[in-house]
């Protein structure tokens, strides 16, 4: 049912766990559907993703997809990371059964959710900064 890569990533995820000092955290999904993915990013001042970690409640495919998504965006700029899609995740994983494709889509969404969180935080900082200056 699952490719060797999926099983390997599920059994030994490279990027599992939370992150201290993450400045972008995004969460997608809900427990009722069986998947919650939480993505933690450390983005530097040049807009490059220095590190990516995840926590996932979900099946084998969900865990493998988020782990692979972390690998895909590490070292990339925000703009590059936003271009990563579920097809890239699927390509690296080998394949997923048809009813598990949504796991790769959710991994893509979790990247976007984390980057959105990063922008929101920046916006707040800028507002705070402008108040101080005024």
């Amino acid at each position: 049912m699952y490719s060797k890569t999926v099983i390997d990533r599920f059994q030994n995820p490279r990027n599992a766990g939370g992150m201290h000092g993450a400045n972008a955290i995004g969460q997608v999904g809900n427990a009722a559907c069986g998947d919650i993915m939480k993505m933690y990013l450390k983005i530097n001042d040049n807009g490059v993703i220095e590190n990516a970690k995840f926590k996932t409640f979900g099946c084998c495919a969900a865990i493998a997809s988020t782990d692979m998504a972390c690998d895909l965006i590490k070292g990339k700029t925000i703009d590059e990371a936003l271009k990563v899609t579920n097809k890239d995740v699927l390509k690296l994983l080998g394949e997923l059964p048809p009813h598990k494709i949504h796991c790769s889509l959710m991994a893509e969404e979790s990247i976007r959710a984390a980057i959105e969180d990063y922008y929101k935080r920046r916006e707040k900082e800028i507002k705070k900064g402008s108040k101080k200056n005024a």
Partner: peptide
């Protein structure tokens, strides 16, 4: 609590233990 059944089933399978799940996945 806090984890998903299919993942439990798959990891147990990798340890040679066969159980089943009726969960979503």
């Amino acid at each position: 609590y806090g984890i998903e059944g299919e993942s439990v089933m798959m990891l147990l399978d990798l340890a040679g233990i066969c159980v089943s799940t009726a969960s979503a996945c």
